[in-house]
């Protein structure tokens, strides 16, 4: 187990380094110059002023240094928890901007992932042995799983938001409210949360249900299920074993899905103008804000890596066959 953990930690460490490097590199490959943009925003005409402003900003963001030094400085400040200053929201620190947005993204993602996983797997397991549910749940599942995130989001926004008017279609809370700890604000927050959550939840749901249905049918036809039934085990016991074993590939699937769901969450946020990381990424790109884009993507990368790491550990705990500590028996 210790060797396994060490190996996994090494792999995740390497992935982290590569991801951070790409994260630093990609904004720098974008066309356009953010400093020019800031200077232009100041709307000054005087060439000398422009010159001195440019120099000031370049020094301030460290863009006057050779590129390799910028890279090393990036790592240095990363370890100090300093992600730089946002160009778009100058002079707010990037870490502040990102940390304000993270709760919104996690707030729709975690419930969407957990609930779709739990409910999808349960429905799928039931569909495996109920013809009615199989004929209804599966086609619907195929339909919504095949939809792109933003398409479903737009449909929901139009249907439940515009046409029926049940839910607001934009923002994390009412623009007339000031964020504070009060019941009315919390209720408003929840009201705005429903549609982004629902679109993420629905798209994932069908996939889990379809996967689980097929896996459970396979497990129920397997040798150990037949043997247990032949020895008079009640259906409940056979089902329990089958469900548990069918969950194993689903957990692997969850690890693979995380990145996709995150991408979906970013797109969904943009559709609903939800103030999470997705909207931040869009704004950062639109405003040529290197540092904000770097910082946001860094959080995304860390989130995916941590979640995958946790799933790797969980998998070892739930599937004895992946354990290296097995010693075997002799006779």
């Amino acid at each position: 187990m210790r060797g396994y953990l060490a190996r996994k930690t090494l792999v995740y460490g390497l992935t982290f380094v590569v991801a951070v490097t790409l994260n630093w590199l990609i904004p720098r490959l974008m066309p356009g110059d953010p400093v020019q943009r800031m200077v232009a925003r100041a709307a000054v005409q005087h060439p000398e002023t422009i010159e001195s402003m440019t120099v000031y900003y370049e020094r301030m963001f460290g863009l006057d240094l050779p590129i390799w030094q910028q890279y090393l400085n990036y790592w240095g400040s990363l370890f100090r928890g300093d992600l730089g200053t946002s160009v778009w929201l100058f002079p707010t620190p990037v870490s502040q901007v990102v940390l304000d947005a993270v709760p919104y993204t996690l707030g729709i993602m975690i419930p969407a992932i957990v609930l779709s996983f739990v409910i999808g797997n349960t429905v799928g397991a039931m569909a495996a042995r109920s013809r009615w549910l199989d004929n209804v749940a599966l086609p619907v599942g195929y339909l919504i799983t095949a939809m792109p995130y933003m398409w479903l989001a737009i449909l929901l926004a139009w249907g439940l938001g515009v046409a029926l008017g049940w839910f607001p279609v934009a923002g994390g809370y009412d623009f007339g409210l000031v964020p504070q700890w009060s019941w009315s604000f919390a209720a408003d927050l929840l009201h705005h949360w429903v549609l982004p959550f629902l679109s993420l939840f629905l798209v994932s749901l069908g996939g889990w249900a379809i996967g689980m249905r097929n896996l459970i049918i396979y497990e129920l036809e397997s040798d150990y299920s037949n043997y247990l039934s032949a020895l008079g085990a009640p259906r409940r016991l056979v089902r329990r074993y089958a469900f548990r074993n069918a969950m194993l590939p689903q957990i692997t699937g969850l690890a693979l899905q995380l990145g996709t769901v995150l991408g979906g969450a970013l797109v969904t946020e943009i559709v609903f103008a939800y103030p999470g990381l997705g909207k931040l990424v869009l704004s950062a790109i639109q405003n040529q804000d290197f540092f904000l884009l770097q910082g946001t993507l860094l959080f995304v990368v860390i989130g995916v890596l941590v979640a995958n790491f946790v799933i790797d550990i969980v998998y070892v705990l739930v599937d004895p066959r992946t354990r290296t500590g097995l010693t075997g028996a002799t006779a």
């Binding site: 397997s222 040798d223 150990y224 037949n226 043997y227 247990l228 032949a230 020895l231 008079g232 009640p234 074993y241 548990r244 074993n245 194993l248 739930v318 599937d319 004895p320 066959r321």
Partner: peptide, 22 residues
């Protein structure tokens, strides 16, 4: 079901995979 195991029991063709692997 009531008769299985107590009265009639089986050693299957597939004893290698007859037990729940997990």
């Amino acid at each position: 079901r009531r008769h299985r195991y107590r009265e009639v029991s089986l050693i299957p063709q597939y004893a290698m995979s007859a037990m729940n692997p997990t």
